[in-house]
């Protein structure tokens, strides 16, 4: 028995040398190409009790939110799918309609401080408060902070020290 245990230990020790080679670098694959994951910034907002999430199918969300104040729609030249903008009091939702993928939420724009990000960031807040709620941005310019999650980005625009734009954008 001792002999077998020795074999197993030796075999495992030898194999360890291999596992460095076997370490998978593709762990970001899923989030990089596809939708959002749990690691990046949250890419949804709650409005009137309805969760509006980037990349999700739009039909049920729009139905739950009720009649928008305004709906504007523009087709594309090849007749392959329209871009529709649903304007609500505190929120604008852009939906890409496509024959292949159905109607998908492509962008969310917050219009006032009634709606906040899940982290509590709202228009009118100070940039430093936004930063402390969201952490260090993935990218920062002199006008905006960007927080990424897969192909989606939360863009916090500011003027001086005040947040004046909050947008969830598909890259």
């Amino acid at each position: 028995m001792k002999k077998y245990i020795r074999y197993i230990c030796l075999a495992l020790a030898l194999m360890c040398a291999f596992f460095a080679v076997a370490c998978n670098d593709d762990t970001e694959g899923e989030s990089g190409v596809g939708g959002a994951d749990d690691k990046g910034v949250k890419v949804y907002v709650k409005y009137n009790g309805v969760t509006v999430k980037m990349g999700e199918k739009a039909d049920d969300v729009i139905k739950a939110l009720g009649e928008p104040q305004k709906k504007t729609e523009i087709g594309d030249c090849g007749g392959l799918g329209a871009l529709v903008k649903y304007s609500y009091a505190s929120l604008e939702i852009y939906v890409v309609e496509s024959k292949d993928n159905g109607n998908v939420i492509d962008q969310i724009t917050l219009r006032d401080d009634i709606v906040t990000t899940p982290e509590g960031v709202a228009i009118g807040m100070s940039v430093s408060d936004a930063k402390s709620a969201l952490g260090e941005p993935d990218n920062a310019t002199d006008k905006a902070l960007e927080y990424k999650n897969g192909k989606y980005v939360l863009k916090i625009g500011f003027d001086g020290d005040t947040v004046n734009e909050i947008n969830y954008i598909t890259q």
Binding site: T72, K85, E92, T109, I169
Partner: peptide, 11 residues
């Protein structure tokens, strides 16, 4: 009325 609409925010 959509004439007054402007392009959406870009990244």
């Amino acid at each position: 009325g959509d004439a007054t609409e402007e392009g959406r925010e870009l990244l």
